[in-house]
Amino acid sequence: MKILLMGHPNVGKSVFFNRLTGANVTESNYPGTMVDYTKGWMKIEGEDVEIVDVPGTFSLDPKDRAEEVAVAMLHENRDAKVISVIDASKIERGIYLALEIIEEGYPLVIALNMRDVAEDKNIVIDADRLERILGIPVVSTVAIAGEGIKELVSRLKEAKPINVEDIIANAANASNTESVADAGGAA
């Protein structure tokens, strides 16, 4: 099995990578570019799993070399699962990228990383509710402190392709009540 760590630049993908793989790291240069990516291995329930730390990208519509590499890596690994790492304090644009990846049919789990930073900004996210809307595992994490990593790994097996129509329907049902993210501190 292969797992791609994807997300915006500076959301903690590499911290996740180091947490997941420990010291068992190989550094590679993606052919034809100057952009590095990193891969390593971990064991999940006895199975060897390859973890790839994909360069940060804002969308699947690449703007520069690093983003081109990120998108190419996704498309060259059609059978991979994706851990979508999102900065919980900037959830709106993080979800945008996650939805783009879901739309392409990849099984996905979401790591709402930097939960502590978000809380400092008075942003509290109802991960359970987001999970019900998206239909995939959503786990709050603080990667640098190791919080939530075990839960994330244990829930990887629940990742499955989701039809975007289902998400739209779930979101419509949920929008009658309170909003998912309560960004009280945002001016």
């Binding site: 990208t57 804002f58 969308s59 519509d61 703007k63 900037k90 709106e92 644009r93 945008y96 990228l97 783009e100």
Partner: peptide, 8 residues
């Protein structure tokens, strides 16, 4: 439009 959509 698409280029800035991912930036929110």
């Amino acid at each position: 439009r698409k280029r800035v959509a991912g930036m929110g």
